[in-house]
Amino acid sequence: MAPRPPQQKVVTLTDPKAIRALAHPARQRVIDELYGGSVLTATEAARLCGLTPSAMSYHLRALEKWGIVVRDEAGEDARERPWRAAAKDLRIDHSGHGAATTAATRAFAATFVAPLVEELLAWAGSDRRGQLDGTSMSRGRMWLTTEEAKALVDQVVALMAPYEERTAADHPEGAAQFSSFWSLMRRPEGSAAD
């Protein structure tokens, strides 16, 4: 059965408690899978994360509370309803400047970056690192106005959208999974070269 389309295009989290709810490795892993187009039962998600189904059910209900994931229609086995992403894209609005927002953002950032580090280390230790398989990493700096930064984010999101819509059941033959980590962050005032 093909996954149902998400109910909305973007879920944007602003509440520090919602942001902090993301700061758990198992939650990050299941969010990554669900926002990648998968539809999973708690048992399937638990297997993916190395947890018990009851522990995963707890995490999924916590994510549901903040509108990050939703229950899908029951499949052939009605005993356990699957879960799916609530939207195509999950965004975090860090515009709040209170201590709670800062603490939640720090907790989320540490958990969010961990898979990136793991994938970089796995890539560095693999036999594929010398092959031209499309893998690319870059880091740079730009001088942008706020309007230009917002426009750039919109352009990158639009550019990636057709590829992110592909699922495990619906992709071109020969396609491989690639992870994308993209961010645009304003550098703190007083940084070098300001």
Rank of each mutant, 00 (worst) to 15 (best):
F112D: 13
V157S: 10
D170N: 14
V113Y: 05
S191A: 14
E148G: 06
G75R: 06
S183G: 15
V156E: 08
T41H: 01
E189M: 11
T145P: 11
R47M: 04
R106D: 07
R187S: 11
S54D: 01
Q7G: 15
G98P: 09
S179R: 15
I31K: 01
A26Y: 03
F178S: 11
A193N: 12
S126Q: 03
A87V: 13
A124H: 06
T43N: 03
W66D: 07
A175L: 02
P188V: 10
E119N: 08
S180M: 15
T41V: 03
E76H: 13
T43A: 05
L144T: 13
W182D: 13
G37S: 03
H94G: 04
H97M: 08
H59T: 03
A109G: 08
M56I: 02
L152V: 08
R79G: 00
R71G: 02
A193S: 08
I92N: 05
A87C: 11
V153G: 00
Q155A: 05
E164H: 07
A74Y: 08
G50C: 06
E119H: 09
H59V: 01
P25F: 02
R4D: 12
A124E: 06
H97V: 09
A55L: 02
V10D: 04
L48Q: 03
E119A: 11
G36M: 01
E64V: 03
W143S: 15
E164D: 07
E147F: 05
L60Y: 01
I19V: 15
S57H: 00
R81D: 03
L159C: 04
Y35I: 06
A151Y: 01
A62R: 15
D194Q: 13
G125N: 09
E80S: 05
A149Y: 05
H97D: 10
C49V: 06
K9N: 14
L121G: 04
S126V: 04
P5N: 07
I19R: 11
I92Y: 05
L40T: 00
L90Y: 06
R81Y: 06
E33W: 01
A21Q: 08
T105D: 06
R84M: 14
D170Q: 14
E73D: 13
I19D: 07
M142A: 15
K88E: 14
S136P: 00
A86T: 10
R106P: 00
A149F: 04
L63M: 13
W83D: 01
D89G: 03
S136T: 12
Q8G: 08
P5Q: 07
A122W: 01
W143M: 15
H171A: 11
L22N: 07
F181S: 15
I92H: 05
R29I: 01
R91M: 12
S191G: 07
A21N: 11
L120P: 01
L60H: 02
M185L: 14
